Amino acid sequence: METAGAEPAAGGEPEKAWDEDELIRLMDVRPAGPGRYAAPAHGAAARNVVEAGQLLADAVVAASKEIPDQRVASASMVFSRAARHDAGIEVELDVPHRGRTYSTVQARVSQDGRFCCAGLILMGADADDLIGSTAPMPDVSRPARPFERPGMQVQGRELRVVDDAYDEDPQRVGPPELFVWTRFADAPPAAYLHSALMTHPVAHWTIAAALRPHAGYSEAMAHRTISTGISKVTVAYHEDVDVTEWLLYATRVVYTGRGTTQSEGRVYSEDERLVASYSVHGMIRPPTGRLADPSTAL
């Protein structure tokens, strides 16, 4: 995602602003035939690559509309080819099993007839608790200063990074983890859109967290002097979420090597409920010589 005015979009067109309404417009996919849904194009962008979290959120919304009497319990997606901001996106669903307790939804995302990514979504019916437990929320502060890194701003969304740990200085090192608070100004009109907005940033933090312990490297080098991307995201949706309340994304990288990185993360509500957990598989490699080609870098 790039911020309006950060740099000219490809082709010299003025870059379209990112705000909460635009995220909802892109993720609230529309029916386009039996088992088919369509998302509109965003338009001009400095980096013409759709984020992994947006594609997964598209599939989450599509599955929620396909099986409206159940909620998304988990969603996983493998990202094979990048999608562009300047063209629409198609989501095709197959439901190999529809049950009273759980249903299975397979999602295939394409653009201009070309396959981009595939996902598996578990839909489920709610039940009363028999037992209950949860992992405790980390004891971290809520910074007073908003996070204002160019390229990550969405009007109507606040970001606050604990200890200013999302840092472009390649000489500042720290543990392979990031704690980020987010909050949207306005509530979307449907519960599945709250889930979509919560899903959107889960893939934001893994690459930066993986680079933190290594002097000489930082997130500022991504897509420029090192080749990075997100190859797989899995999210489990535990509790109802309200994106107008503060949410804490707690991401810790558990492995980096062989050109890959793997993180585990949790999303906590303001009242310390664990509302979701996630895992992200990413790529960190030397430059391939094709970093400018959006089809080769997710």
Rank of each mutant, 00 (worst) to 15 (best):
C117A: 04
P188A: 11
M152L: 11
D139E: 15
A190H: 14
D69N: 13
G88Y: 08
R100C: 13
S76Q: 15
D69L: 12
G88K: 11
P96A: 01
Q106M: 07
D94P: 00
V180M: 05
A75N: 13
I67K: 07
C117S: 00
A125E: 15
T104I: 06
A165D: 09
R108C: 05
A82E: 00
V109P: 01
E92K: 07
R172V: 02
V162C: 06
V109G: 01
Q155H: 01
L159T: 04
T104K: 03
D94C: 01
S64A: 06
W181N: 02
A63Q: 10
G119D: 14
S76M: 15
P176W: 10
E66M: 09
R142D: 10
D139K: 15
F147K: 00
C117M: 05
A87Q: 09
L178T: 02
S141E: 15
S133I: 15
G132I: 15
L178H: 06
A118M: 10
S133D: 15
D126Q: 14
Q153L: 11
A187R: 09
D164I: 06
E90N: 08
V173L: 02
R157I: 05
D126A: 10
H97Y: 02
A185S: 03
V180Y: 03
P138K: 12
P170S: 04
A127S: 13
G174N: 00
S64M: 11
R114V: 08
S103E: 08
H85L: 04
V72R: 13
S74F: 10
G132Y: 15
T104A: 03
E177Q: 08
A118R: 11
P170H: 02
R71K: 14
R98V: 06
P189L: 12
D164V: 03
A191P: 12
C117P: 01
Y166F: 06
E90H: 07
E148F: 12
R108H: 07
S74Q: 13
A190C: 12
D128S: 05
D69W: 14
D86T: 04
V105M: 03
R100P: 14
F147G: 04
R100H: 15
G88E: 11
D167A: 00
V173E: 00
P188D: 15
R114M: 08
D169H: 03
R71D: 14
R108T: 07
L122F: 11
R71F: 13
G156F: 04
G119S: 11
P146A: 05
R108M: 09
S80E: 06
P146M: 07
V173Y: 04
G99F: 08
G99S: 06
T104P: 04
V72C: 11
A191V: 13
S141P: 12
R81L: 07
S76F: 14
I121F: 09
P188E: 15
G113P: 07
R183I: 03
R149V: 07
S103W: 09
D128K: 11
T101I: 12
P146H: 06
W181D: 00
E148W: 14
R142S: 03
P143V: 03
P68N: 08
V140E: 13
Y102I: 09
H85M: 04
G119I: 12
G156E: 05
P146N: 06
R160K: 07
M137A: 03
Q106L: 07
D169N: 04
P188L: 14
V180K: 03
D186Q: 10
